[in-house]
Amino acid sequence: MAKDDRLYARFDIAMDEHPKIMLLSDAGFRALVEATLYSRRQLTDGFLAARIAERKWGRDVIDELTANDPERPSWHPHVKDGVDGYMIHDFAEHQTTNADIEAKREAGRRGGLAKAAKRGSTSLAPATDLLQQNASTTPSAPLAITETETETETETETEVPTSNEVGGGARNRGTRIPEPFIVDGAMRQWAAENTPGVDVDFTTAKFVDYWRAKSGKDAAKVNWRSAWNNWLRNDYQRLPQQKQSPAQRAASFVGTFGTNQVAIGGTEWT
């Protein structure tokens, strides 16, 4: 049977009997589990942006999870990279973090380099042996497998890119969305300048979930950064007028009535 390469979250089998968990409402318990799964999926290391949390679970649930224990509530207020939000209690102690993934990836890279060096130091084999070796060579495991408990040695490039900029490498082939898809400072600055009013975290979550659910050729992109830019532009175009900036509303207002005459409350102003 093929190895299950899906991502998982860890939960203590006695978690539901913990005093601070037993008293949670159904909505609170569900939000605690969903938030852990969301953070694993989005690789946020337990951080939940306030806007995402309020939109997904609501203010009442947030208040419940941040007050279900006087010293160690399930969530506690936290600021990450200037973004207000909440941190899941002891997330890094129980779940796989970005640092864990990078450590396994680096271990795999070192193992691949060591194998390559060992092959380079061996004597040349007969042509028939080389053909047999090439025929039995298997591709390296994707990133999802490198998150498992076993060490993975990689000899060739994985099909899952680690950068948002390009997908296909030297041959410029399309690939699936990167693991993880990271919104860096430059991308947030671009969004602030080009798509003001768009909720970057919420929109990115929709973007990532959409493309991870896709299969086949439709799920491959050559440049995921450009795809993300276009996704934000589309969301920006759907923003209602009241969510635009004052300057944008003014420009739209002038464009409607003309630059020389504006009617306000039945009175003409020229």
Rank of each mutant, 00 (worst) to 15 (best):
A35I: 15
M15R: 04
G28C: 07
T158G: 08
E155V: 04
P77A: 10
P77R: 15
T146F: 00
A125N: 03
D5A: 10
V166S: 10
R41W: 01
E157K: 14
A144C: 13
A99K: 03
A219I: 04
V222E: 13
F47C: 11
G46M: 00
E159Y: 05
R6P: 00
R109H: 07
D12Y: 05
V79D: 12
A50N: 07
E71F: 12
K80M: 07
N172W: 05
L124M: 09
R238F: 14
Q242R: 07
A227F: 11
P126T: 15
T154Q: 03
V160Q: 00
V33P: 05
D81N: 12
R171M: 13
A53F: 05
D184C: 02
E54S: 03
L65R: 02
T270S: 15
L143M: 01
V61L: 05
L43A: 13
E102W: 05
P139E: 08
Q42Y: 13
A205T: 06
G28A: 10
T66K: 07
E106Y: 12
S74P: 02
A99D: 09
D90Q: 11
Y86A: 05
D12C: 11
P73L: 04
Q242H: 13
L48T: 15
D4V: 14
R176E: 11
T36I: 13
E153N: 02
Y38N: 04
W57K: 03
H18L: 14
K206N: 07
F91E: 00
M187Y: 07
L24S: 09
M22K: 15
P180Y: 08
D201Q: 08
P161Q: 14
G112W: 04
S245R: 05
T44N: 03
G266K: 15
F11N: 06
W269N: 07
F91D: 00
E268G: 09
T158Q: 07
H76V: 14
T156W: 11
V61G: 02
G168T: 00
H78I: 05
P77S: 14
D12A: 06
